[in-house]
Computed example of a mutant assay.
Amino acid sequence: MATMGEDDAPELPKKSPVPGQIDDSDGEDDIEDKVIKIVVVGDGASGKTSICQRFAKESFDKSYHQTLGLDFFSRRIMLPQEMQVLVQVWDIGGQSIAGEMIDKYLTGANIVFFVYDVTNSKSFENVGDWLSVVKKNLKGSENDVKLVLMGNKTDLEERRVVPVDSHRNFSNSNNMMPTYVSAKTGDTVYMIFRQAVADCLKIGLSRAEIESDIDIVQGSVIEATKVGGKVADGVGDTRKVHFVEDKDTAQVQRSDQSRNTSVCSIS
């Protein structure tokens, strides 16, 4: 990660260190990466940097650090047919919405993530302002830019204040890909990055490939409450997260069984 100010933008590297289980090519020089630039925008404290760190480093920092200007992340991923893609992520500070460098940060973007906090209604309302700024600065862009609406902090579902219908309607009316993530647990973060990149490159992912990106998280078994012989499953728009025990591996698979929403919705 590199932290930049409002006066300069990073020179994009052609190669980056290969973190974790991403690529088995050992950085062979004869492989030419496809490069995808993702710009992440949204209000401060919405979790943008945490999402970027979760994707690039598979880690989560509990302390909050305000991004001043720009943070830069990168990670190399593999797509079907052994296609290697260098994903460069530009994390834009919340105050940069009125900054003089915003046009330079957005130049050459292939994908823009609009991040808001599902427990903060103001952060969702301000997505409209970010969208206006992005569209203004990308007007005339040579790239067909993919827009993604990302509701963060789904681990705090009980504190949700932004209705699922508002999320869905806003994304539909603005031709955005709607999705939810949790930077804290890592829930669907890598999957969304990989799907957005694949979609941008017009590469189809099979159901098996998508499901392989879903994390298995550790947890305790929750006993569902039975009412009249039936399992109670939440009320109204409240999303319930169930845990299913795998007795052989002592792992617990997290799945969303909401009536009205899902963890990830791809248009």
Rank of each mutant, 00 (worst) to 15 (best):
V217I: 10
R239G: 04
G236S: 05
E211L: 10
V241R: 04
D213M: 13
T261E: 07
T185D: 14
L205I: 08
E125Y: 05
K135G: 03
A56E: 04
K135W: 04
T67L: 10
Y64K: 05
L138P: 00
E11L: 15
S220N: 05
A56H: 15
L147P: 00
G20V: 13
D29I: 13
D23S: 11
E158H: 11
H65N: 03
E211H: 06
D7C: 14
L12F: 12
F55E: 00
V134K: 00
Y116W: 04
L70S: 03
V161I: 06
R168M: 15
K146M: 15
K57H: 14
V118A: 05
A2H: 15
T179F: 10
T107C: 10
Q253E: 05
L138I: 00
V112G: 01
F113H: 05
S212D: 10
V181D: 15
A2V: 11
D43Y: 00
G151A: 08
D29N: 08
D165N: 14
M177E: 14
G140K: 02
N172V: 15
Q257P: 10
V41M: 06
E157C: 01
T261L: 08
N174W: 02
G219M: 07
V18W: 06
E209W: 01
L86C: 12
E32D: 12
D144W: 05
T179A: 11
T179M: 14
N143R: 09
D30Y: 09
I31R: 11
E32N: 12
N152S: 06
F243G: 13
V118C: 07
L79A: 01
T185V: 02
V148L: 09
N126A: 03
W90T: 00
D256C: 15
S25K: 08
S220A: 07
T261I: 11
Q88V: 03
L205Y: 04
R259Y: 08
D33R: 13
K226M: 09
Y64Q: 09
K104P: 02
G186H: 05
E245F: 14
E58T: 14
G69C: 01
V112A: 02
D187G: 09
Q88L: 11
L70H: 07
D33L: 08
E100P: 04
E11A: 11
T154Y: 05
F72D: 04
S212N: 09
D103E: 09
Q257M: 09
R160M: 03
Q53H: 07
D103P: 12
D199N: 08
I97P: 01
F113Q: 00
R76T: 15
S166V: 06
L201P: 03
L149P: 01
Q218Y: 13
V241Y: 12
G204C: 11
R259N: 08
N175F: 13
V41R: 00
A9L: 12
A224W: 11
Q251W: 05
I36H: 00
F243D: 05
M191S: 15
I210R: 10
D129E: 12
V18F: 15
V162N: 03
D248Q: 10
Q95C: 11
G108R: 00
V197L: 03
N169C: 13
H167A: 06
S173W: 03
Y180D: 04
F72C: 03
E11Y: 11
V133P: 02
G219Y: 02
S141W: 02
A224K: 07
S265C: 15
R254F: 09
